[in-house]
Design a protein around this nucleic acid. Structure first.
Ligand SMILES: Nc1ccn([C@H]2C[C@H](O)[C@@H](COP(=O)(O)OP(=O)(O)OP(=O)(O)O)O2)c(=O)n1
Length: 1157
DNA sequence: CTTCTTCATTAG
DNA sequence: ATCGCTAATGAAGAAG
């Protein structure tokens, strides 16, 4: 039994047949077709949910109910504006324009000047009604067209833009001189910044600076503007002037060049940077010690800054703060350690036996030590693996490129009228540009003695079972293909020369490549397929260059030649280009063009197509090919061709392959392909740009103990965390996919440390709340692992995926701006669905004792504040919605349903605005929480056993781990609603089940009694509970549910919110509860967790503010109600300002910390 | 019928 | 030795 039998390996082993198969480029799937490319839909997509709702509600000003005034509350102005200006203003308030250009102000200026001349304001107001919903669209159209022109200019030349802007200023009598602040500065923007990259672009060039879209070489820029750095970039940029975006805006505000050093990014320690520090340690390990020391000094400095920094704005920088907490804590933990390598091990060391600890110390010797096996047990495995994995690099580059292009959509003329006309009349010209055997060519340039055109060359790590990443065409002539194992390749070509990877130079060439494409300005759109290949739309350029005598074909070839020679000039690498009228044909054309060639497929398309093997069609892999061959069973032909497909009817294809795939095959066989190569505007709707983030490792996975695995899971969590932070997003759904050695597979597969033949097991957990916290993720993964129940020794692969992503900025903003009474609509947005968000927060509260790992989880479960569990949106005013004209309404509905939001007044979540019954509304708003059992959504029916069981018993081997904090309770006489259970984080689920036992015993008594009995229960169940722990847990006992678990930050926040809400139905907080809470804070402070205290206080404060606003705004309250609730607020505030604040102040005084609460 | 989840497939 | 990643898509099935 060897690897040759795995599916993966068979696919690789098809190298021979696949020899001509290399040209398959971007999958058609990746370039999703957009049927609606209009500006309005794009604009809608660019809004986040709350902005969208604001927008909808603002479409009819007069119908605006006082409860739906998000727009004015956002803007903080109630000044009446003329209608069109209003609309423009609302654009500004969203701060996202459809093209992320950041020219908002200029545009707003112009728009208001053009359409609402000064002095006409009052007259035009009479047209308000008619303008109501239609006006905005018109304005938007103007805006859009205007922008198109603008953007094209910008692409052609920044100079032109500056000139244009000067003109504009002249026209508008803006005579204030614009100082060339950035004279001599060359600015590059990395990643997502505030203000946006394009805004910085504009500001820089208007103030005399040079702006780089891409970084040819790092020396090219004098300053790198960046608000967040991935660890990788951080290393790359460590010796450059990396400044925060605020530097730009401040310079402009002050109208002078400020010292960049005051804005250096290093002050904003985030996880990425901390990682960096560590990475640095590792690197320094391997190369340079001075570097390490310097970095550590900075890190320490930063810690000091963080601790004493008193004017951190808690409300706006929560995310940052939480991250900082992590940093501080972790760094503190690390500092005393003498082994710097132990950094990744901190929480492990706490819980791990000493023996294992020393085992690991042994492994901490240099990665390069040939005597140790570098598998996943090694603490540095992940880092080392990713640094050397080509596929990891490819994937990373790909998503990086996509992100970069998302932010800078080079798509200037696609909507301009003239081009539209032309391109509608003519077929498009799509080009597919691809480096020839990219890795081989690029690596070869490091070996001047080798000739890529004469010697057979392959890029590989160089073992027997090592993959050939890329081989040149000489080698391919011997039958070698990409992905083949080296041993086989060497059998095919004994004198094959193997050379190493050089990921850095690949990146460099790619930058040159893309910089050229962008700067040439000849393309309607550029779609980056991968690091070395791109799809170009050159329609307008080629059309405008063709005349009677100089045909379109000529001008296409002209352009192709120009591109190819230019890129060869720049990189010394040859590229091939395939061109045709659509993506499919361009991809097929480039196969014919390779190597180092070109081909424009413009006539005899069908003749060409007929002889193409189906496997060459993009998106058609070996699996579909097999199916096709099965259907064609008449012939024993080895390679089915496209012409064979023509024999099938569309119905038949759809039947065999499914609707979409069948249709695709049918169309492909006829040369039809409507794949758009514009960057998917769907993606630019936010920073998200993706639906999931994952970390996969299917190499080197060899564990002996669960502890080793759990350590590795934590490492994966941290990696995932770091990626999420880098992207500024959180997720609320976590999937663990494990590969288990197939029963008949050998223990060691043929490939060294490979995975061999595996069975796969997936389990997804809904976290209920978006998070990026690695403590939560790590614990969740451990729980998921236990549920899958696969013996550690059998594991061969682990993949972790975070999905249901949310933008951190959006979470933050919502938290700041939104009023709690809008919480009604939040079910959808929280991805919890089905009305059970209530259940979640409360079930969590009810989770039973988790006496294990109390201390370590305190450290781990330090979540980022932005993982807010309360996503509140304004709801749509359906009265308003009804009035909107049909076509607009259609777009809006489409957009709403695309987001999974409610798109009609009746469906799903009960938004009962019309009811106008204040009591009902209030109840939804502040649910009465007296009746604890309701919150469980417990279904009291004679039950089948919970679904969980099935899973567990289905698992290959039942493992009972005594260290497991999760105990399954099997004999339930009452069961929970399964759908509710399934919504829970898996670690909680089992505990909820267990909790039921308590529930049965502890009938509802009076509060104090309950509290006592629970304490007793706890003590009998586990004797590990310390008094302080009990104190801590009892904090939240006031709500009818008891909490006896080490809570994560999120959970605590949820609880606090619940607590506050509840107090509004009573007479304010109970003094005892305040006492408990104060004790809890004291406990935290005892552990020096000041930051969490402050964050919790902040939560309290914010929450109370929200309630105040509800009270003051909700007109339906009777005076008594109002007074009652106001008294409650005042009660709270008094407690806050005295009892609670004092605890913190005392602590601060004692520890000489300056603080300003 | 719609929507969500899970899983396999695909690309480089 | 050896670095077998990762995000998207769509089909099938489950849930409603
Ligand atoms: N199984 C694979 C396939 C590709 N690659 C890497 C190496 C290639 O250089 C790069 C680009 O892949 P291509 O499919 O474009 O192949 P090449 O560029 O090597 O050759 P060509 O484009 O000429 O067909 O991706 C890889 O590591 N493993």
């Amino acid at each position: 039994m060897d690897d040759g039998l795995t599916i993966r390996d068979t696919s690789l082993a098809q190298g021979d047949e696949d020899k001509d198969d290399r040209q398959r480029r971007a999958s058609g799937c990746e370039i999703a077709a957009r049927e609606h490319t209009g500006e309005y839909p794009s604009y809608l997509k660019s809004l986040d949910d709350s902005q969208l709702i604001s927008h909808i509600n603002s479409l009819s000003q007069d119908r605006h109910s006082p409860l739906a005034v998000p727009r004015s509350s956002v803007k903080g102005t109630s000044t009446p504006l003329p209608p069109n200006k209003k609309f423009v203003e609302s654009f500004k308030s969203t701060s996202t324009d459809p093209f992320d250009d950041g020219l908002d102000e200029v545009i707003a200026d112009l728009a208001s000047k053009n359409t609402a001349p000064v002095g006409l304001d009052s007259e035009s107001s009479s047209e308000d009604e008619s303008f109501g919903h239609v006006g905005p669209l018109h304005d938007f159209g103007d805006y859009g067209t205007y922008f198109q022109n603008k953007s094209r200019k910008q692409q052609q030349s920044d100079q032109a833009f500056v000139k244009w802007d000067d003109e504009r200023r002249k026209l508008q009598h803006d005579t204030s001189p614009r100082k060339k602040i950035f004279d001599g500065c060359t600015i590059f923007v990395n990643g997502h910044t505030n203000p946006s990259m394009s805004e910085i672009h504009r500001l820089v060039i208007l103030h005399g600076g040079v702006f780089l879209s891409f970084l040819h070489n790092k020396g090219a820029a004098t300053h790198i503007v960046c608000d967040r750095l991935t660890p990788r970039k951080r290393i790359a940029f460590r010796n450059y002037k990396v400044v925060k975006a605020k530097w730009i805006t401040d310079c402009i505000a002050k109208n002078q060049l400020l010292n960049w050093f005051d804005y250096r990014l290093i002050d904003d320690v985030d996880y990425g940077q901390k990682r960096l520090g560590f990475d640095k340690v590792d690197e320094a390990d391997l190369d340079n010690d001075d570097q390490m020391i310097a970095e550590q000094t900075i890190a320490e400095q930063t810690i000091a800054d963080q601790i004493t920094n008193s004017d951190v704005n808690q409300s706006t920088k929560n995310q940052q703060d939480e991250d900082d907490v992590d940093d501080v804590e972790e760094l503190e933990n690390d500092l005393p350690l003498t082994q710097p390598e132990s950094e990744a091990e901190e929480e492990k060391q706490k819980s791990q036996s000493r023996i294992e600890f020393f085992e690991n110390l042994n492994q901490l010797r240099d990665v390069k030590d040939p005597n140790i096996i570098l598998d996943a047990k090694h603490p540095k495995f992940l880092q080392h693996f990713f640094a050397n994995s080509r596929l990891h690099h490819l994937s990373t580059w790909k998503t990086d490129l996509r992100t970069r292009f998302l932010r800078r959509i080079v798509d200037s003329s696609k909507l301009s009228v003239s081009t539209l006309l032309k391109t509608q009349l003519h077929e498009k010209v799509i080009m597919h540009v691809d480096f020839d055997c990219f890795f081989a060519t690029a690596s070869c340039l490091n070996h001047p003695n080798l000739d890529i055109n004469k010697d057979p060359i392959a890029v590989t790590h160089g073992g027997r079972t090592s993959d050939v990443a890329s081989c040149n065409y000489i080698a391919r002539n011997h039958g070698i293909s990409n992905g083949m194992w080296l041993s086989r390749a060497q059998r095919l070509c004994p004198n094959l020369i193997t050379i190493d990877y050089d990921f850095d130079s690949y990146e460099k060439f790619s930058n040159l490549f893309y910089n050229y494409l962008i700067s040439s300005g000849k393309f309607d759109s550029i779609f980056p397929v991968l690091i070395d290949e791109a799809l170009l739309d050159a329609t307008s350029y080629c059309l405008s260059n063709s005349t009677e005598s100089h045909t379109l074909v000529d001008s296409v070839y002209d352009l192709i030649n120009e591109i190819r020679s230019k890129i060869y000039q720049l990189t010394n690498c040859s590229v091939s280009i395939g061109a045709s009228k659509n993506v499919l044909l361009a991809k097929l054309a480039i196969r014919k063009a390779k190597p180092n060639g070109q081909f424009y497929l413009h006539d005899k398309v069908h003749e060409f197509l007929k002889l193409v093997p189906v496997k060459n069609l993009p998106g058609i892999g070996h699996s579909i090919k097999e199916k096709i061959m099965n259907e064609l069973k008449n012939s024993s032909k080895s390679e089915p061709l496209v012409q064979d497909l023509l024999t099938f009817s569309k119905q038949k294809l759809m039947h065999i392959f499914g609707d979409k795939t069948g249709t695709k095959l049918f169309n492909y066989a006829r040369g039809k392909d409507d794949t758009s190569i514009k960057i998917d505007l769907d993606n630019s709707e936010s920073v998200l740009g993706r639906k999931s983030v994952s970390v996969d490792v299917n190499f080197g996975i060899r564990f002996d103990t669960v502890t080793q695995l759990e350590t590795f899971l934590i490492d994966l969590s941290k990696e995932l965390y770091s990626r999420l932070v880098g992207l500024g997003i959180c997720g609320s759904s976590l999937t663990l996919r494990l590969a288990k050695r197939a029963d008949n597979a050998p223990v060691e597969p043929e490939k060294y440390l490979g995975m061999g033949v595996c069975d796969y097991f997936n389990k997804t957990s809904r976290l209920g709340v978006p998070t990026n916290d690695w403590g939560i993720i790590g614990n969740e993964l451990k729980a998921l692992y236990r549920m899958l129940n696969i013996p550690v020794k059998e594991l061969r692969g682990i993949a972790v995926t975070m999905s249901k992503l949310k933008d951190v900025a959006m979470l933050k903003k919502d938290r700041q701006m939104r009023l709690p009474f809008s919480a009604i609509g939040k079910n959808d947005d929280m991805d919890i669905g089905k009305n059970n968000d209530m259940n979640i927060s409360n079930v969590v509260e009810a989770s039973p004792i988790k006496a294990v790992k109390h201390i370590s989880s305190t450290i781990q479960a330090q979540p980022a504040t932005h993982s807010i569990d309360r996503l509140t949106y304004d709801t749509i005013d359906w009265e308003v919605f009804k009035e909107i004209p049909e076509d607009i309404k259609r777009e809006l509905k489409r957009e709403l349903s695309r987001r999974g939001m409610q798109n009609s007044p009746i469906k799903k979540s009960p938004v009962k605005r019309e009811a106008a019954n204040s009591k009902v509304f209030l109840q939804q708003l502040l649910p009465t929480q007296d009746n604890g059992s309701v919150k469980y959504a417990r279904v009291v029916h004679p039950s089948k056993s919970p679904t969980k069981k099935r899973k567990v018993s289905k698992s290959p081997l039942p493992i009972k781990k005594e260290s497991s904090p999760v105990k399954y309770v099997t004999d339930l006489s009452t069961s929970y609603d399964e759908s509710v259970l399934n919504e829970l984080p898996s670690s909680v689920k089992a505990e909820v089940l267990k909790d039921l036992q308590y529930k049965r015993k502890v009938k509802r008594m009076n509060l104090a009694l309950t509290r006592e009995s629970i304490k007793n229960e706890e003590l009998t169940v586990t004797n590990k509970i310390t008094q302080s722990w009990v104190n801590q847990q009892t904090v939240f006992l006031q709500p009818p549910l008891f909490l006896n678990q080490q809570f994560s930050y999120n959970e605590i926040v949820a609880k606090i919110k619940g607590w506050i809400q509840m107090t509004f139905n009573q007479q304010g907080p109970h003094a005892d509860d305040i006492g408990f809470f104060r004790n809890y804070l004291a406990e935290l402070l005892y552990q020096h967790n000041l930051n969490r205290c402050l964050n919790l206080m902040n939560v309290l404060q914010t929450e109370l503010d929200c309630h105040s606003r509800v009270i003051s705004m909700n007109k339906h309250f009777t005076p008594e109600e109002r007074e009652f609730k106001t008294a409650c607020i005042n009660d709270w505030k008094a407690y806050l300002a005295n009892d609670l604040k004092n605890v913190i102040l005392q602590y601060c005084i004692k520890n000489s910390i300056e603080i300003d609460i």
